[in-house]
Amino acid sequence: MLNMLLFLLIAVGGGLSATWIMIERGSALTTEINGPWTHWTAAGRLDADPYTRAHFARHALLPVSTALIGSYQATLDSEGRPLHSSCEYVLEGPEPSRGWWSLAVFDAGGKLIRNDAGRHSFSSDTAMRAPSGRVAIHLARSARPGNWLPTGGAGRLVLVLQVEDPHDAAMGGAANSGDEPNVQLPSVRRIAC
């Protein structure tokens, strides 16, 4: 009896738990973590590994190849605390890339957050820059000056930053050689709760 329980625990429980962790959270084999940002390195590629394929299929997502568009997701702030609509945050940093980029906020289920301003994202076309070229985007329930993304009463938040042609981006970050993406990811700083 004890042997049977142990067998089931390891074989079924262990096997499925490992699957869940590898597909939901990813690992060093499948993701790059840079501060609060997670990037599935083989998303949308023909040579994607089974974990990456399962991750995007399970969530019914249609990723564009990471060779063309880099997609970075954050569910934590830069201190490692979960993003929540009851808090206010500011995303700060230089322009993520020389090419086209967008940053959107969603609830934990990947749905847009209803708000009177009808605002859900900023892009390189719509974000205001400081004279220094830096970009600051505020996440808050109520209106803030500058680039403000309303978070309403969504609860847990998910940020998605998309950068076109991440390997050809011009500014800082990783080296511009090889296949390493060259993207400047903003910090996510909690201002108040």
Partner: peptide
């Protein structure tokens, strides 16, 4: 994409 009418999760209206 608009709130309540998203076809897929994480559909950026941009």
């Amino acid at each position: 994409a608009a709130p309540g009418s998203e076809l897929l999760p994480f559909s950026d209206p941009v």
